[in-house]
Amino acid sequence: MSKRILMVLTSHEDMGLSGKKTGNWFDEVATPYYLFKQAGHEVVLASPKGGSAPIDPFSYDEMFMTENTHKFLKDPAAMRDLSNTSVLRNINYRSFDAAFFPGGYGQLWDLANDSFALQMIQDLIYTNKHVALICHAPAILRDVKKPNGEPLVKGMNVTGFSNSEDDELSLSRHLLFQLETALKEKGANYQRSEKNWVPKVVVDGYLITGQNPATSPFIAKTLIEQLAKV
């Protein structure tokens, strides 16, 4: 049965005062986008500001491009979706069956501090709907609460981009905060792969998290599998 998936992207493209550009990691948008559609699901793109959602320039490097990113660039419908995202606050997220958050450093600046996004995640999880976040997107969970006011991730199994992966990119000093540290401070049972850049997906109830860009197809397939059980 076809489901509706809300894909929530960052609108932020500046990495603090570093002068570096960021945005959404391209393959974390493109690969799930096509896998969801191939599974027969509807995909709606939204972002805090709406309109064109920025892609991290680094993710256009050929070493990070994939069959799906190349396909996306040549797909008028996909590029139109990316250029015309809906304003997140105008979305009736309760009409969706799941939410998916691609990663990118921009999420640390806007979505991690977006009260609407935080409330949406809580509402979806506690109405038995799946929320999946990959790479840096799990940083958004830092300030999501349980209905009793405790951190959502307290006692939960989660993953996301590791401190050592940030360090390997020499970007740690430019960040507002590091995801791994922040989630551990909130009481999460943070898990990661044994080596950097190795895929890892963690499922805890209706929350699905993925560690890094290599996890992109795996977290998309996991969400598809979870939706098939509903």
Rank of each mutant, 00 (worst) to 15 (best):
Met1Thr: 11
Lys3Gly: 01
Ile5Val: 15
Ile5Trp: 00
Leu6Ala: 10
Met7Ile: 09
Met7Arg: 09
Val8Gly: 07
Ser11Cys: 05
His12Ala: 15
His12Asp: 13
His12Glu: 15
Glu13Arg: 13
Gly16Pro: 00
Ser18Asp: 14
Gly19Ser: 15
Gly19Ile: 13
Lys20Asn: 13
Lys21Arg: 10
Trp25Lys: 06
Trp25Gln: 05
Trp25Gly: 03
Ala30Tyr: 00
Ala30Leu: 09
Tyr34Gln: 01
Tyr34Met: 02
Phe36Trp: 09
Gln38Gly: 07
Ala39Ile: 08
Ala39Arg: 01
Gly40Ser: 08
Gly40Asp: 08
Val43Phe: 11
Val44Trp: 11
Ala46Lys: 00
Ala46Phe: 05
Ser47Trp: 02
Asp56Pro: 00
Pro57Glu: 07
Tyr60Leu: 10
Tyr60Gln: 06
Asp61Trp: 13
Met65Val: 11
Thr69His: 06
His70Asp: 14
Lys71Glu: 02
Lys71Tyr: 03
Lys71Gln: 07
Leu73Pro: 01
Pro76Gly: 05
Ala77Asp: 11
Ala77Glu: 09
Met79Pro: 01
Leu82His: 02
Ser83Ile: 03
Asn84Cys: 09
Ser86Phe: 09
Leu88Thr: 02
Arg89Val: 08
Asn90Leu: 15
Ile91Lys: 01
Asn92Phe: 10
Asn92His: 13
Tyr93Asp: 04
Arg94Thr: 09
Asp97Lys: 09
Ala99Pro: 05
Phe101Tyr: 14
Gly104Leu: 15
Gly106Arg: 06
Ala117Trp: 00
Asp123Cys: 05
Leu124Phe: 10
Tyr126Asp: 09
Tyr126Ala: 09
Lys129Pro: 01
Lys129Phe: 04
Ala132Met: 04
Ala132Pro: 02
Ala137Ser: 13
Pro138Leu: 06
Ala139Gln: 02
Leu141Phe: 08
Leu141Thr: 07
Asp143Arg: 09
Asp143Leu: 06
Lys146Cys: 14
Pro151Ser: 12
Leu152Glu: 10
Leu152Tyr: 04
Gly155Gln: 05
Asn157Val: 14
Thr159Cys: 13
Thr159Ile: 11
Thr159Val: 12
Thr159Asp: 04
Phe161Trp: 12
Asn163Gly: 07
Asn163Ala: 06
Glu165Cys: 11
Glu165Tyr: 05
Asp166Ser: 07
Glu168Thr: 09
Leu169Asn: 06
Leu169Met: 14
Ser170His: 10
Ser172Gln: 10
Arg173Met: 09
Arg173Asn: 15
Leu175Gly: 01
Leu176Cys: 04
Leu179Glu: 08
Leu179Ser: 07
Leu179Cys: 06
Thr181Cys: 11
Ala182Asn: 03
Lys184Ile: 15
Gly187Met: 08
Gly187Lys: 12
Asn189Trp: 08
Tyr190Gly: 03
Gln191Tyr: 00
Arg192His: 15
Arg192Tyr: 11
Lys195Ser: 10
Val198Pro: 02
Pro199Ala: 13
Val201Phe: 12
Val201Cys: 13
Val203Gly: 10
Gly205Trp: 13
Tyr206Ser: 09
Tyr206Cys: 13
Leu207Glu: 00
Asn212Lys: 07
Asn212Arg: 04
Pro213Ser: 14
Ala214Leu: 05
Thr215Asp: 11
Thr215Asn: 07
Ser216Asn: 08
Ala220Asp: 01
Lys221Ser: 15
Thr222Trp: 00
Ile224Ser: 00
Leu227Tyr: 01
Leu227Asp: 00
Lys229Ala: 12
Val230Met: 15
